[in-house]
Computed example of a mutant assay.
Amino acid sequence: MAQVLFLGGLGRSGTTLVERLLGELPGVCALGEVVHLWQRDLRDDERCGCGAQFSACVFWQQVGKTAFGGWSEVDVDRVHALRDAVERTRHIPRLAAGGAASAEVREYASFYARIYDAAAEVSGAQLIVDSSKHSALAHLLRAAGGINLRVVHVVRDARGVAYSWTKRVARPESDDGDEMTRYSPGRSALLWNAHNAAFGLLARRGVPVRRIRYEEFLADPRAGLIRLADFAGITLQPCDLDFLRPGHADLRVGHSAAGNPMRFTVGRLALRQDDAWMRSLPAAQRRLVGAVCGPMLRAYGYPLNPQEAR
């Protein structure tokens, strides 16, 4: 049974950075956003974080062979049908209510469990990191059992998240010039509330959940990684954090299946606070997001007046 650390939260909250830094620790294998593997990798053959097409990545081909006897043995249509049937935010209250998981939930979760087990075997890692983020998937993995699951709930100020969702970001793994999805501030505010609340519900159902604020993690990534390693049951030596330097991290090649373009970064990665939203997100939009997300912003310790966040 693989030990899995699931990184959850709304997109643009910093999970890719947390994943990349965790992936530098000994005994850790970071897989990126496995939830997108079925379409972006198996169907579209996009690039792995190592730069190779998925079909040419030795790591992922070994994982597929170990898990399924080869990726050609996976019925992707069936995976998509199961996803459409069970992995929906609206299903979370039912999933969280407890009781026996349905046959469809168990079948869908089994695809992930087999990938996690295979990745652990191929890499020799003690801990597998999946940064899929989706709250519904986290609930499905809990309901199905068979996975030693711990969840890191990554929270970022809703106004910073909203500003990030408005920006145009190219998807370098796509050969068609695609861009990442964009949301209006109002839409992202509603999603921020829903996804973060879902992870709070997961914690009340007995799953070990550690919430971190992205801004605090970035301010002291060394201390943040030590706390996360302890949460995941990983013992670190001081030298294990030598890749962290003042203001940056030195990253090796990774095998992220999908995610933010940062997954392709090799070498120096700057570690600095991104507070451009305080200057660039229009005041009316800041007020809108602050009003929609106010109760949860306060609960997470964020000031409602952006100037107090400096």
Rank of each mutant, 00 (worst) to 15 (best):
V4L: 11
L7S: 09
G8L: 09
G9K: 13
G11W: 00
R12D: 08
G14S: 15
G14P: 12
T16H: 09
R20A: 12
L22Y: 11
L25A: 10
V34Q: 08
V34E: 15
Q39V: 13
Q39Y: 14
R40G: 06
L42F: 12
R43S: 10
D45G: 02
D45A: 02
E46G: 08
C48W: 02
G51E: 04
Q53V: 10
F54H: 14
F54C: 07
W60V: 11
T66A: 12
F68H: 06
E73Q: 13
V76F: 08
R78H: 12
R78D: 11
H80G: 10
L82C: 00
L82Q: 06
D84M: 00
V86G: 14
H91W: 09
R94C: 13
L95Y: 14
A100H: 08
S102M: 03
S102Q: 09
V105E: 15
R106E: 10
R114E: 07
Y116K: 10
Y116E: 12
A120D: 11
E121R: 09
S123K: 06
A125R: 09
I128S: 10
K133C: 05
K133F: 05
K133R: 09
K133W: 06
H134T: 15
A136V: 12
H139A: 13
H139Q: 04
L140Y: 07
A143W: 05
G145P: 07
G145T: 09
N148R: 08
N148F: 00
L149C: 10
R150V: 02
R156I: 10
A158Q: 02
G160P: 03
V161P: 01
A162R: 00
K167T: 14
K167F: 05
A170I: 03
A170W: 00
P172V: 08
D178S: 04
Y183V: 00
P185W: 01
G186F: 01
A189G: 01
A189K: 00
L191T: 03
L191P: 01
W192G: 04
N193M: 02
L201D: 13
R204K: 14
P208I: 00
E215A: 12
E216T: 15
R222G: 15
R222W: 01
R227D: 15
A229V: 11
I234Y: 10
Q237E: 14
P238I: 10
D240M: 00
D250K: 02
R252Q: 14
H255W: 11
H255M: 08
H255T: 04
S256L: 04
A257W: 12
A257Y: 10
A258R: 02
A270K: 05
L271W: 06
D274G: 06
L281M: 07
A284Q: 03
Q285K: 01
R286A: 04
R287N: 03
V289W: 03
V292R: 05
G294N: 02
P295Y: 06
M296V: 05
G301Y: 09
G301E: 09
R310N: 04
